[in-house]
Structure formats: structure tokens, C-alpha cells
Amino acid sequence: MTGTLLHQTLDLSHSLLQHNAGSADANRAFFLEKGLTAISIVSSPGAGKTALLERTLTELRQEIRMGAITGDLQTENDAERLQNRGAPVLQITTGEVCHLEAEMVAKAVEKMDTEGLQLLFIENVGNLVCPAAFDLGERSRVVMLSITEGEDKPLKYPALFAQAELVVVTKCDLTHILDFDMHNLLQNIRRTAPQTKVIMVSARTGHGMTDWYAWLRTQVVPEGWAVVQQA
């Protein structure tokens, strides 16, 4: 009973990111139900994501109930830097994986006490390429760029910049030292992400942090919103 070998062709359109998309939708539903705003921060390594969060968790702690998840290939260093600021903090170490995926975020959130939290920061693994392909279920994606990286980065990593709800340009305290062409950078951001809001900060001096805080306030779900939705 050895039948003839036949070729059979299946036409498909199975997205390779479908699995992640499902988990991201589940995260979104979870955050929505809790009235919790998740904001992911993406940048290259060393742009200053953790530094921005250090200041934010300290300076806004009286006003907004915040938590943070930090992703890195190795070490718990970032979570340690964010400790003792009144916010629950959890480190995800991804091992080999160069980006966070929705399921990793789901597992981290499960371990965390998110009751009553208003803002959850998700610091992605430092990488301007791969995170672009993975929706985490966050409400907003913030792309950070430190001026030491050069004016042309938005043109080199357009996929990520195009997704940004907000671009935070950081290490602005170094503008003069680097003779940085801010106008050129803004033009390059406009070219890849015409609609995106841009703010300039220095986590070192605190310059521009009020703009960042003002934007964060627009992201917080007003008290009672979840109840209104049900009515």
C-alpha cells in the first residue's frame, strides 16, 4: 500500500506575529479593565530609559500611583535602581531574546501587585529594531533618543519611530558639548513620524521634565472612568 506521492499546495496568510498579537490583546483588555495605563519605553541601550524612570518614580510619587517593569538580556540592575521609590518594580531578564514580547509582560504583571496602580511603565530591552515588531498591549509607546546617538537615527530606524506616540529626546544637557543639530533631528523625526509629539529632556538636570510629566498626566485614566464605561 505505497500510494503515489502527490504534491499538495496550501495557500495561507498566517501572520508569524499572531501568537504575540493574541497575548497583546489580552494585556490590553486586562489594563483597560483595571483602568491602568501601560506605557512602554523603547530606545537603544544606554539612551537613559532607567534614568528617566528613576526621576519620574520619585518626583511624581505623591501624585500618580506608578509601577515599572524593566526588560534586559541579563542582570537585575535596572530594577534595583528603581527600588525604594514607593512603586512596585519587576525585572524581566530575557536571556537571549532581544526584545520584550506580550507574553513576558503578561507573566510579569501576574507576579506584580497592580491593584490601584494608574501608570505602568514597561522599559523594553535596549534595541531600536526588534521591539518594533512586537505589540505589548500598551496604550502608548514612547521612543527615546539620546542626543549622543546622532541626528540621523529616526531615518535609520523608521519602523520604530513611526510607532511612537511620543518621542523623548534626552541628555539635552549635552547639546552644547556635542554641538548637536537639534533642528536637523526634529526634521528627521518629522520625516518618519509626522504626527508624533516630541519633547526634550535631561534626566540629569531635570530640564524638560515638566513637559514629560504633563504628557504623562494626559495618559492617566481619570478616576471613575471604568465605572462610567460599565453604566
Binding site: 502527490l6 499538495q8 498566517h14 506575529l17
Partner: peptide
């Protein structure tokens, strides 16, 4: 980023 086609060998 999709799996678009699969050609199988079937008896």
C-alpha cells in the same frame, strides 16, 4: 510577516 504557502508531499 506571514507564512504564505506550504507545499506538502502526501501519499
Amino acid at each position: 510577516l506571514e507564512l504564505a504557502k506550504l507545499e506538502l508531499i502526501v501519499r
